[in-house]
Amino acid sequence: MRYLNILLFLAKGFETMEASVFVDVMGWARNDFDCDVNVITCGLSKTVVSTFGVPVTVDTLLNEVKIEDYDALAIPGGFEEYGFYDEAFSEEVSELIRGFNSQHKPIASVCVAALALAHSGILTGKKATTYHLNGGNRQKQLGEYGVEVINEPIVQTDNIITSYCPQTAPGVAFSLLSILVGEEKMSEVRTAMGY
């Protein structure tokens, strides 16, 4: 039996809640419903500090990642003032995103992580969404990358999932789980978690 490995990339200044839902949803699926899903955290450094100052020790470094070892990529959003875009827009991260996309592997992003996907070039000409409040500034920014911006909570286009605010994070994780193990199994997990 081989686990379906999800690479959870944590950029500096990531939002803790948006990352934790992937760990929890996949943990429930594995622990209580025998789903062969596993989350491996990844960063550009061994310790990544979140938006609100929570240090997280990641499982692996980005330069150690071999895309063939993973079945999906998940990226939580973060805050600009905590340096999120410094790493999320780096060439190493863009290469990672393009690598997963070129193999048509699922890529799930929450909130402004969609901007990292757009920055990598994989959303050009595609439907996607990102943070929609505060005058829609982030959605306008997304549109500048040639993305067809859809103002909906979660937008799935081909292998790519984008969403528009932290509240959508569990839905993104469930959408990714559904792609990996099927709608029926995902529904069981979602119900058990009270969603």
Results as ranks from 00 to 15, higher is better:
Y131R: 04
L177Y: 10
E80S: 13
N134M: 13
C165L: 04
V54P: 04
V112D: 08
V58P: 08
M1I: 09
N137T: 12
V54W: 10
N31Q: 14
A113E: 08
T51H: 04
T51L: 02
P153R: 13
A29L: 11
R2Y: 06
V147M: 06
A11Q: 05
A192S: 14
N5V: 07
D24S: 13
A11F: 05
E184W: 07
Y131I: 06
L4N: 12
I6R: 09
F52G: 09
A118I: 02
G83L: 07
I122P: 04
N134F: 13
E18W: 09
F89V: 03
I97W: 04
E81D: 14
F100E: 04
E152D: 14
L180F: 03
F22C: 03
V172D: 08
G43F: 09
T57W: 03
F174T: 01
I161A: 02
Y85K: 12
E91T: 11
N5F: 02
I75R: 11
Y82T: 15
G182N: 07
T57M: 12
Y82R: 15
H132W: 08
N31P: 02
H132M: 04
G194C: 05
D32I: 09
G13E: 01
G121C: 11
E64Q: 14
S175E: 13
G146Y: 02
S163M: 00
P106N: 08
S120A: 15
G78F: 06
I107P: 03
G143K: 00
N5K: 15
A72G: 09
D71I: 02
G125K: 06
Q139W: 03
D71N: 15
V54R: 14
M193Y: 08
V149R: 02
G136E: 01
A116H: 07
V112L: 03
H132L: 08
C42H: 09
Q141P: 05
N5C: 06
N38Y: 12
S187I: 05
L10F: 08
N137K: 14
E18T: 06
V48S: 12
C111G: 05
N151C: 14
F22H: 10
G146P: 04
A19L: 12
N151D: 15
V49G: 07
I150V: 15
E15I: 08
K105L: 10
A116Q: 06
G146W: 00
G27R: 01
T16G: 07
E68K: 15
E152L: 05
S187E: 14
C111F: 03
I161Q: 02
L142R: 00
D36E: 15
S163W: 00
D36G: 07
F100T: 09
K185I: 06
A116G: 12
T130M: 08
V54N: 13
Q103K: 15
V149Y: 01
V149K: 00
I40D: 02
F89P: 01
P153Q: 09
L61W: 10
D24G: 14
Y85D: 10
R138T: 07
R30T: 10
V56Q: 10
Y164C: 15
A19T: 11
M17T: 06
G146M: 03
